[in-house]
């Protein structure tokens, strides 16, 4: 349940493009055609799904305060978290390079569709942002971090697909000359972001706590009633 909740939350509510503006540069630069947008989106899902769990392991066993305790007693006091930026970005850059080599070797057709986008991705803020948010939101387990990576990748994919489709159609509309191209894309993205804000109430769980308290209160009440009943019975006897 926790996994499903995080999955939908990272796609819709904390959507990388619309809620946190991550990966905007490639989002604006590569969204002129739907086919290239799909290629880049798929590559982002792929790389996020690999790097977020990997960086979770690094964070947990190397970088957090006290994370080095598995090395022995004397390492408990070390806090290497100031190194996280450089570790994360190095992991991402090497992983992207590694994935590129492996994909080229084993699946030339996939390489042809994803290959040109992979080098772009090393400097995409969405990838580093995924790892940094994973760290700052303190995601507790490895499987949850994998779910978070895949979910935010899918959210990014949806966003770039939607804007690319709109930009293909908007060529036929009469946009004011000064707004053509970049300007109108910004404004459309803003409007889409307003739309995505309406997902905000989807998983708040705001109603969850109150009924629980009511339930315990009711249980107490029934207990009280039972006691009263028991007392009455005793009295009657």
């Amino acid at each position: 349940m926790e996994h499903i909740e995080l999955f939908f939350k990272s796609i819709f509510i904390d959507n990388m493009v619309f809620a946190t503006f991550l990966g905007m540069c490639s989002y604006l630069a590569v969204s002129k055609k739907v086919s290239t947008a799909v290629g880049l989106g798929a590559a982002v899902i792929f790389v996020l799904a690999i790097t977020v769990p990997l960086n979770w392991l690094l964070d947990q066993y190397l970088l957090q305060p006290g994370a080095l305790s598995w090395l022995g007693e004397e390492y408990v006091d070390y806090d290497l978290s100031f190194l996280s930026f450089i570790m994360f970005i190095a992991t991402i850059a090497t992983m992207v390079q590694l994935v590129e080599i492996v994909v080229e070797k084993f699946s030339p057709s996939l390489y042809n569709s994803l290959g040109i986008f992979l080098p772009l991705i090393a400097v995409n803020c969405a990838i580093l942002g995924g790892s940094l948010f994973m760290q700052s939101r303190e995601i507790p387990t490895l499987s949850l971090s994998a779910v978070y990576g895949v979910g935010s990748g899918i959210g990014w994919f949806l966003a770039i697909l939607a804007i690319a489709a709109i930009r293909e159609k908007i060529r036929y509309s009469n946009v004011p000359p000064a707004l053509r191209g970049l300007g109108i894309t910004f404004i459309i993205t803003g409007l889409m972001a307003i739309g995505f804000m309406s997902f905000g109430g989807m998983l708040t769980g705001g109603d969850e706590k109150a009924p629980k308290e009511n339930k315990t209160a009711e249980v107490k009440l029934t207990v009280d009633k039972k006691e009263v009943l028991a007392n009455n019975i005793k009295l009657n006897n």
Binding site: A19, T20, L179, G190, L191
Partner: peptide, 17 residues
């Protein structure tokens, strides 16, 4: 709210162009 940042930048682009 965050969407307004996009729209403000869009307007700046509009004015500049």
């Amino acid at each position: 709210l965050s969407p307004m940042a996009l729209i403000v930048v869009g307007i700046i682009i509009w004015v500049q162009r």
